[in-house]
Nucleic acid binder design. Structure first.
Lengths: 343, 343
DNA sequence: TTGTATGCGTTATCAG
DNA sequence: CTGATAACGCATACAA
């Protein structure tokens, strides 16, 4: 049976008062008769009345919904991140509309479109790896829908974003390795066109230069992030006359493939060669050979901050009816040792 | 600058026609002048007009939003599942409101509440482990908001649900082990009160009985799912006069802890003792010792089906203005060998 | 202290 | 073929 939801109109009818009275009574308006107020509130409770958020949002041109677009929730990094986002959102009574781009700009565009249609109050997004056009996003800002980018951020200055500086992190990482006596350090990097790859490479070069070591480009291999690509990179590195004693991998997936290949070649992982990576996956702690050292990227924290910034932006908006501040937050990329890494 | 979104009213004003004409022209109504129609459509395109979905939804009492509540997106099982849900949703122009219960009934209740407030068209939920009251959910159905449960479903007959029959799966698993010559089979189960534990235990018992093996309750240990709990369970099992030659673990997390403990004790994993589990985590393929055999639970498929059922329900609803069918879908729980398991 | 009227953007029902 | 108007549920400015 289709049980109709009670409305203030219904309550008003039953109590022989006007809808505005009911509306005010329910919102605890100051100048309203105590008697009427209680009468209204009691009936409301009895009828299980709940304000129709749709109607309110419609009227106030707000939805209290924030769109969140991630490349892939299967990556532990992003499932952590969205938990941070959700936590901050819940605290401020916002709610999350979820979508994935699967690292496909076309899908990303579609999701953005769907969210615009749903009139989200704001959008938090970590860009697809392939995204290099931003029209679908800048379009949103014309409609005054604020965007906060996190982790995979666009290469513009004046956007709201929170990210880890992996350039600096990589410099630290290289420095740490050198200080421990590892000098022949290799890098298995990702595809050139990715910003993430550039950060890592530049950090790698700077890290070596800073310690007066010269950069040997034979030590820099690329992988297309597939297992085969990583295997090929490993093959090249191991075939060198002077193979590396330490390998920095692009991320934990590459790390796991690289370690797997090394083991197949009879190499003592983290002994003959030590492996270090970027902390994308807490789960690596369970694997036989987690990276000896990782650059922690704080996905939960990044998500949380992104949402907090969003709240600020929305607040600024209601105050001034326009957004004039740009929030940029660079989080530290800290070096962490893995507890149960075996050396 | 606050750029106002164009409305049909605005278009009507500019073209000196009525809003209804504009509305009809845009929705390609049959009896409308071709000239007017094109004029309207052109201006609409020029102004970048987009119908305000909020307004339409409000009027139609529909949001095209489906709430999805999961225990924890960090579990790979659920990140797979939500991808399946999203895929089916996108196909039908539905969109997903995301929330986690963190296996806490209180939080679950709050999330359900928030989603009711947002007037989701339906709810897809995998219950928190601790949930044993269902008022917060049955309440939704009174408001005619359909619910589809998946994987962790309530113990009622007449609800929409999709799940894997782990009872049967466990029987198969035990049978497989016995047929391979393993007879002293242990089970490290989860907390008694969980439905999931009962399924596994019953399957375990039935599996043994079917093959005329008697059940030795010393072979059945419990863990509270913490690492310590699993370690303790392993300790007991290994201390037995006749320790097991095969161990079925409650899930892949328990599996990994159990394997870790076994290794610490100098046991040759999958040789001295073979380990089998339930496929909650694709990532186990990367670990040193994935379960030799797993019971696949098809998270993506379950999510997809759950959403498809939701679509049907919503369709039924608009047709009949009430929902009379209950959809129950039991998916197979198949035995799978792990490719790179080492024996 | 309470009621009336208006508007949010859209569609649908009547008229014309 | 097109226009005027009501309605969806609520908040609020203005009246009383």
């Amino acid at each position: 049976m289709d049980k109709k939801l009670p409305t203030i109109k219904e309550i008003a009818r039953r109590l022989n008062v006007s809808v505005s009275t009911v509306s005010r009574a329910l919102s605890d308006h100051p100048r309203i008769g105590l008697r009427t107020k209680t009468r209204v509130q009691e009936l409301a409770k009895e009828l299980n009345y709940e304000p129709n958020a749709q109607a309110i949002f419609f009227k106030q041109k707000k939805t209290f919904v924030i769109g969140v677009i991630l490349p892939s929730i299967r990556e532990e990094f992003f499932s952590e991140a969205i938990s941070g986002i959700e936590s901050a959102a819940t605290e401020h009574n916002y709610t999350i509309l979820f979508g994935q781009s699967y690292d496909d700009p076309e899908k990303e565009k579609n999701v953005v479109e769907a969210m615009k249609k749903q009139r989200v109050d704001g959008l938090i997004i970590s860009l697809s790896k392939q995204t290099n056009k931003y029209d679908h996003l800048t379009a949103l800002e014309k409609y005054n829908i604020p965007i906060v980018y996190f982790d995979r951020v666009p290469p513009f200055e004046k956007v709201n974003k929170v990210y880890c500086n992996l350039y600096k992190g990589t410099i630290d990482m290289v420095g740490w390795l050198i200080s421990r006596g590892y000098k022949r350090i290799a890098l298995i990097n990702g595809p050139d066109k990715l910003a993430a790859s550039k950060e890592r490479l530049n950090g790698y070069i700077e890290g070596l230069s800073k310690r007066k070591l010269k950069v040997d480009m034979q030590m820099v291999e690329k992988t297309n992030l597939s297992r085969e690509g990583t295997y090929a990179a490993m093959r090249s590195l191991l075939a060198l006359k002077h193979p590396p004693v330490a390998i920095i991998t692009f991320n934990d997936y590459v790390h796991m493939d690289a370690v797997q290949y090394a083991q197949q070649q009879g190499i003592q992982v983290n002994k003959d060669i030590i492996f270090v990576s970027y902390a994308n996956l807490p789960i690596t702690n369970y694997t036989a050979f987690p990276p000896l050292v990782s650059i922690e990227q704080y996905p939960y924290g990044q998500g949380e901050r992104a949402m907090e910034i969003m709240i600020k932006l929305l607040h600024d908006k209601t105050e001034n009816n326009l957004i004039d501040t740009t929030y940029v937050e660079e989080m530290p990329a800290t070096l962490v040792m893995h507890g149960n890494a075996r050396v």
